[in-house]
């Protein structure tokens, strides 16, 4: 039986979809069977980032309303045979996907996959509740900005209410030079405020933008720092104790943090 993990953040534009695509691809790269589910009805992106836009015939709302079978809507990735995407609907109404329908879909997916990765829409309304309702675990993505951390805090509170045990934190788009100069919140501050286990830190990396535009997840490039960061996150999800990437910060902090890492 696979595990359903929701990737969420509250605030938009912090890298939920990019993180979903890269973590999903990294898990597939390590031989796991993965299905990514895009629940951002009306604003679907995951297919674009994965470069699978032109293969969509049916979407998750078609499955929910019985107009298509699950197997018809699932798209196989170009690169991996065991990586699939269930795309969001682009034209339908937000409310077309209900909590019940989401439960049913995830229940069907879990026995077939090691991981069901649910990409959550921004906000904390209907779409959020639907995406979170069927998840066993949660990954909260934030960036080193006050507003993003505040929204992440709110979302963590809502996840706790949904009985999702101890969500894990990914801090995205860190610029070591700005952290050093004190212009950006540092990792210690963010973990201190959110009081969550850190699953990984991802440095700001131009490759991510380039790759997303080409429909190739960054994680497939062996040379980029973000790619290594996402691979490390995937390894930690699989239970490997991988130390945090050194962003030229003081080593002491990282030694302190990485003992707490992993979805264990």
């Amino acid at each position: 039986m696979g595990e359903a993990i929701v990737v969420t953040s509250g605030k938009g534009g912090v890298g939920k979809t990019t993180s979903s695509a890269n973590i999903g691809t990294a898990l597939a790269l390590m031989g796991k069977k993965v299905c990514m589910v895009d629940t951002d009805i009306g604003l679907r992106n995951l297919d674009v980032v994965m470069g699978l836009e032109n293969r969509i015939l049916f979407d998750i709302v078609d499955v929910a309303t019985g107009q298509a079978r699950l197997e018809q809507a699932m798209i196989k990735d170009k690169r991996f045979d065991h990586l699939f995407l269930l795309p969001a609907a682009q034209t339908k109404d937000k409310l077309a996907l209900s909590v019940d329908a989401m439960h049913k879909i995830v229940r069907l997916l879990k026995p077939q996959f090691d991981f069901v990765l649910i990409d959550c829409p921004a906000g904390i309304e209907h779409g959020f509740r639907v995406a979170v309702s069927a998840a066993d675990q949660a990954i909260v993505v934030t960036t080193p900005e006050q507003a993003a951390v505040r929204d992440a805090d709110r979302v963590i509170g809502l996840l706790e209410k949904e009985q999702i045990p101890s969500p894990k934190l990914v801090i995205n788009r860190i610029r070591p030079s700005m952290v050093r100069s004190g212009d950006m919140l540092d990792i210690d501050d963010i973990v201190g405020i959110l009081s969550l286990d850190l699953l990984g830190i991802v440095p700001d990396d131009e490759h991510v933008i380039k790759a997303a535009n080409q429909g190739e997840p960054t994680v497939l490039r062996p040379d980029s720092r973000a790619s290594i960061a996402y691979r490390n996150i995937a390894r930690r999800i699989l239970g490997e104790p991988v130390p945090l990437m050194n962003l030229d910060e003081e080593a002491g902090f990282f030694r302190k943090m990485w003992k707490r890492i992993g979805l264990g």
Binding site: R150, D151, D153, R154, I156, G157, L158, E160, I193, S195
Partner: peptide, 26 residues
């Protein structure tokens, strides 16, 4: 016992002890 996060409200008609943080917005 736990973190009072943004958007959460703890209310009681006696003393309240929070064993954890009260974050901005809580």
């Amino acid at each position: 016992k736990g973190t009072v996060r943004s958007g959460q409200v703890i209310e009681h008609d006696g003393d309240v002890v929070v064993v954890g943080d009260v974050n901005a917005g809580g």
